[in-house]
Design a protein around this nucleic acid. Structure first.
Lengths: 338, 338
DNA sequence: TGCTATCATGGGAGCGCTCCCATGAAGAGG
DNA sequence: CCTCTTCATGGGAGCGCTCCCATGATAGCA
């Protein structure tokens, strides 16, 4: 069905090896020969067989993207679509392909084996792992290059791309305190997710820096979903905070809904700040003050870094921390208005 | 690094061929031999090399999922995440893997070649193609098994999974008319997308069936995004419809925002109905009347059907139409209340 | 008992490629 | 003019698997 190296070789009057060299941009090929082979390959619409190449060379130019679905909620918020877009786009630009695994718990074992062995994959991007993800141990034992999106506090020999969740959250909460809010509550993310616990840590650091006592009554944990944010806010309303730092925009949307239903004005009665700057954050009522994190760029950089790790193995882990940005909109209230 | 067939064979005291038969559940292997081989394979944690298998057998057990990103908006609405989840889950259950291509126009040519040739992929799921997608022609020329999510009106020898957009839209608009709305407008999807034009067709059929004259002033086309729905609604407000059938929930969310800003009550002043039943539709203010389409199931069925097509080639195209469901919430108003 | 069907198993060929080593031609240097 | 290097090229081996055919062994039947 499809053309082979041998066929190109025959038609170009050279050997299989020479064609292979041309296809892989090997230096020592004569200019004329190269051109001739190229033109034949072009004419026959030649495409190297991925399986054969991978079998012979041990590389596939395929990256695995593993997204644990234990926290299935994550797929209703635009985080993963954006991340995938970034990864896919970087892979396209670097002649790689993306293999996607949504890690459903019931298939986890099989998947781990398939991902790690079988040689299908040159490296793995592990997105948003729980702190105790079993993939991790398997990966490092296997020695397959991999990179995480989101840092892992317990391990300091693992490569990752992340934003500085602690400092970003701290800055946001500091901002809320600075513009005059006194009782600042938080709707935190799950404690077993790094982003959740880091943002909560930032919240506490901001309080401490300003000499505000930490009050456990002002903390509710939720699961990063809209519904979770809604329920959490309902529990927070009786406590009457001035402002709430919500650890994700999706939850903030839920919180706004709870406040609207309770007849409370935002930011008049309670101010709200989120985290992520999902596209919808600019269009909530009122528009959401939030922390912008470059999700798509994190995906691109993760892919690019992994590709580089594969071609230039290096014992040290790579770390990339991308900057965030406070996006001040109306939901946090203004210093003037208070 | 990883164990090979030959190694298993050696340790189990049989030949490579026998091990291969055991691994592929070939019938003619002695029970004892089979058990012995299985246990050795288990012990050595054997995983067949995908590249080698695929090279020898010509199958890879990998499905390609191609999502054209021309309409990039689609990734901000939960349609694709849900679709991907359905596909991935069916693949997991059937021992297949998913290769993801977000088809950015600038890489389109390269991608088409890679997808179609190279033997990496057993079949392709093409999601939400435009009516004139260049992938299509390439696919059918190549003869690679493929299935679309979303039908294609111009081609009747292509396999697809879809909902009946025309009838679903017709039912929704009929419902709006039946409960007493007179001037029913529509915010339509893009005319070059099948779902867009089908739903618009359903709108017109419903009017005709009820003997209501079609009024072009009551139609605004948008691009399936929240922002698009917002702008479209602003243009529709001066026309003063009683109700608006919005061709997607994402756009309906935008429409609600425009109405809120204009100080109009829903459904009191203008009733709204959407399409999709995205998770957020139940939580808009007011909750959105919409058409529920089983997005995740469409994904699963597309994958399952494709897998079946690959193992049982068959000249006739397969078609699956999944049922939709009217979900009546508050945004459409009630017959009683009017 | 002899002859053919059936079954379990082994071994060779080959999938399309990359990598290594061998080869011959051409250029460099004394 | 001969040897030494450099460069372009060819060919063999082999990646790990599947598939086909051959081979014994066993069973079935007259």
């Amino acid at each position: 069905m499809s053309t082979t190296l041998e066929e190109i070789a025959r038609q170009a009057g050279v050997s299989r090896s020479t064609v292979s060299r041309v296809m892989n941009d090997h230096p020592s090929v004569d200019q004329d020969t190269r051109a001739r082979v190229r033109s034949v390959a072009e004419r026959l619409n030649y495409q190297p067989n991925v399986a054969a190449r991978s079998l012979a060379a041990g590389r596939t130019n395929i990256l695995g993207l593993v997204i644990p679905m234990g926290v299935s909620a994550l797929f209703t918020d635009p985080y993963f679509p954006l991340l995938i877009q970034g990864i896919s786009s970087a892979c396209n630009a670097n002649e790689h392909s993306v293999m996607l695994w949504l890690a459903e718990p019931e298939y986890e074992r099989r998947m781990i084996r398939q991902v790690l062995q079988g040689g299908l994959i040159d490296g793995v991007i592990l997105a948003s792992a729980l702190m105790d993800d079993p993939m991790l141990e398997a990966m490092r034992r296997r020695g397959l290059p991999f990179i995480m999106v989101g840092r892992l506090p317990t391990d300091n020999d693992i490569s990752y791309v992340d934003v500085d969740n602690v400092n970003s959250a701290r800055e946001m909460v500091s901002y809320l305190l600075r513009i005059g809010h006194r009782r600042v509550a938080t709707i935190a993310g799950p404690a077993n997710m790094i982003a959740g616990s880091d943002r909560f840590m930032g919240y506490r650091q901001a309080l401490r820096a300003r000499g505000v006592a930490f009050d456990p009554a002002l903390v509710v944990e939720a699961d990063f979903t809209e519904e979770g944010g809604y329920v959490a806010m309902q529990r927070l309303i009786p406590v009457r905070p001035d402002a709430v730092f919500v650890a994700s925009d999706a939850m903030a949307v839920g919180a706004l809904r709870a406040l609207r239903e309770a007849g409370l004005r935002v930011p008049g009665d309670i101010a709200i700040a989120g985290f992520d700057d999902i596209p919808f954050a600019a269009r909530t009522d009122p528009p959401l003050t939030t922390v912008r994190q470059p999700i798509q760029r994190m995906g691109s950089i993760a892919a690019e870094t992994l590709i580089d790790m594969i071609s230039h193995p290096h014992p040290q882990p790579r770390r990339v921390i991308l900057p965030t940005e406070l996006v001040i909109r109306e939901s946090s209230g203004s210093p003037v208005s208070r």
